[in-house]
Design a protein around this nucleic acid. Sequence first.
DNA 1: CACAAAAGAGAGCACTGCTCTTGCGCGGGC
DNA 2: GCCCGCGCAAGAGCAGTGCTCTCTTTTGTG
Lengths: 230, 230
Amino acid sequence: MSTAQGARARARIEVTAAIKDEARRQLAAQGAARLSLRAVARELGMVSSALYRYFPSRDDLLTALIIDAYDSLGESAEAAHDASAPPFERWISVCEAVRGWALDHPHEYALIYGSPVPGYTAPDTTVPAAARVGLLLIGIARDAHQGPAPGRPAMADDLRPEAERMAADLAPDLPPEVVTALVAAWAQLYGLVGFELFGQFNRVVEDRETFFRHAVGQLARGAGLASGPR
Amino acid sequence: MSTAQGARARARIEVTAAIKDEARRQLAAQGAARLSLRAVARELGMVSSALYRYFPSRDDLLTALIIDAYDSLGESAEAAHDASAPPFERWISVCEAVRGWALDHPHEYALIYGSPVPGYTAPDTTVPAAARVGLLLIGIARDAHQGPAPGRPAMADDLRPEAERMAADLAPDLPPEVVTALVAAWAQLYGLVGFELFGQFNRVVEDRETFFRHAVGQLARGAGLASGPR
DNA sequence: CACAAAAGAGAGCACTGCTCTTGCGCGGGC
DNA sequence: GCCCGCGCAAGAGCAGTGCTCTCTTTTGTG
């Protein structure tokens, strides 16, 4: 073995990466449904059947791209995360990073948060990568609730069991009310981003950046990340 | 002319409807990307090229299905709308109707609110049908703000121009703060529905109905539809 | 009744994902 | 250092797709 696991394995890794790169290029250019194994192979100067040695099916290639997309998004969000800023500002920054990433990578965003490619169900492999943004938001909320808990209204009785279950799963150190609001805010964040990205805001919202910043600010308040008067 | 516009036109309408019905069946069964013109034609006992006399392309068929889906969703939402109930309850009912329709028609929901079918951009034809749910929500908010306006916090200065523009466009009789919150709530509603439908809540939210009712209740409060203590 | 317009049939093109068989060449055990 | 075997690529081929073109049949109407 020359280097770790020999030269053959290295070549394999390189070819695999080249395939993913070219696939990502096509994905960004035309979207997931138009991603064609044959076109990728053609562009790489190989014959289509050779590509199946690296990805047993188109879905497997897509899965690899999905994981990469989750990671890329998670990285952007984490990079936007200045741990020294107050929680409210950090929340806004992370949300804006998510929006920015989505606008920069619309087809990749559609791949992971739009309708799943029909006939395709993401394997559990994607779970850890998918959780990164959520964990980041939870972390911010945790910091915000370090000190004495700000007064929060009571919760409806019928929600309490589910809220406590979610809190136990996601953040046992946070009050169930906060965890509930956090999960809702998480989903709603993607509603805002998706509507903008998929054209639902056309002819409705013009100054989308301002609108977005305001809306995610409200989400933060809903999750108990207090701030000055709106 | 035997009947209005002749029998030929009637036959055309019937065949068009039959094509859409079969297409909708395939859509519901397998999703948009697997919808095949040839399969539809086969099922209908016609040859594929004949189908192009009715829909010039696959995208045109999809557009027809999209409009129908918007209308079906709008109808469900309007049917759930008991005009005599107080606004807050009406809001909840409409939101639950949207969620229910989405769970009943996942692929159609994905078609209209998921990632747009790549390479496809919806023509303006779809706009009126798409607006139905939004108009319904605006109407509810209007009723809620009939009486003396409940106290609402001030709005950030940078949002004011956009808020006033949106209000002028969508509901000149409503305060800009409310219109802004309404638009945000509208987008966030679909974030909640989409996350549940597309599996993002798997292993996170269990009692989704309760969670949803609570979350849209918060949205309503954000839009100034006051109600009892949460 | 005749004729033109509308609809259907069928072949064909270029493309897709995927499989199978064949042959080449390089890596690694001897 | 040699040579074998395995990893890999190549190519043909299958079944399917959207869409176009031409030709024939049907049918409503002047």
